[in-house]
Amino acid sequence: MSNPYLPFRAAIIEVRRETAVDFTYRLEADMQVAGGQFVEVSIPGVGEAPISVSDFGDGWIEMTIRRVGRLTNVIHHLRPGNSLFIRGTYGRGFPLERYAGKDLIIAAGGTGLAPVKSLLNRYGGNPGEVKSLTLLAGFKTPADILFRDEIERWRRQHRVEITVDRDDAGGWPGRVGLITGLIAREPISQPENTVVIVVGPPAMMKFSTLEFIKRGIKQENIWVSFERKMCCGIGKCGHCKIDGAYVCLEGPVLNYTTAGRLMD
C-alpha cells in the first residue's frame, strides 16, 4: 500500500546564502514540478514543514528557506553532502496557459519572491511566451533583498523595480517605500490584457491586490499564493482549510475570484 507520508532522502548539492536568515538549497531530486507548488521538507526527529520549490531542472530542485524556528534553525546548519527528507510535490502551481501572450506583472513581497523565481527564469529563457514581464519586488531593508545575482540577470531580460520599506543603514541607491507605491505608479498600458501575480505576507497581498484592482486589472486576471499552517500537504490534517477550501489542495496558488471570497 503506498504511504503518502513517506519522505525520500535528497542530498544537498549546493547551499547559497541570500541574506543573514535566508539560504537557498539545491537538492538532488527527480520530481515533477509546476512553478508555485510546494514540498514537505523534514529532518527526522526535528520536524516537517511546507516549503515552495523556488526553481527546478533536470534531477534537481531548489528551495529558499528562512530561519524562523525549530526545523529551519537546524536546516541552516546543513552543508553540501548532508541531506534533507522530501515528499511532494503538492498543491496547484501557476496556470501558465493563462499568461501566454499577456502583459504579466509579478508583485512579490520578501520571501514571496521564492515561489515565483522559477517563473521569472522560465520567461527569461522563453521571452516570446508572454508579451511582457515586469517584476515589482519589495523588501524590508536592503539587507533583506533575495536573489541579488538573479535580479541583475532579470534586469537585462525584463522590467524590474525594487523597493525597500526603509533604509536604516543608509546608502541604498534605489527606491524607498511600500510596494503598493510601485503598483500605483506602474505604467499599465492595457489593463484588460494584463495578468498579475501577487505573492508575499498577508497584509502585502491584501493591499497590493486592492491597488491592482484600482488600476483596472480584472479580478479574474489576478493570482495570489496563500500561506497557511500545513501539516500534511494532502488534504487530511485540516490545518490549511479556509472557508470551504484546502489551501494545500486548491492552492497555494489561487485566482483572486476564489481567494478574494475566502473568509477566515
Binding site: N3, G235, K236, Y246
Partner: peptide, 13 residues
C-alpha cells in the same frame, strides 16, 4: 471521505 478520498490521496495508516 477525508482520509480515503479528500484530495485524491489515500491515508494508508
Amino acid at each position: 471521505e477525508i482520509f480515503l478520498r479528500n484530495g485524491g490521496r489515500v491515508d494508508s495508516y
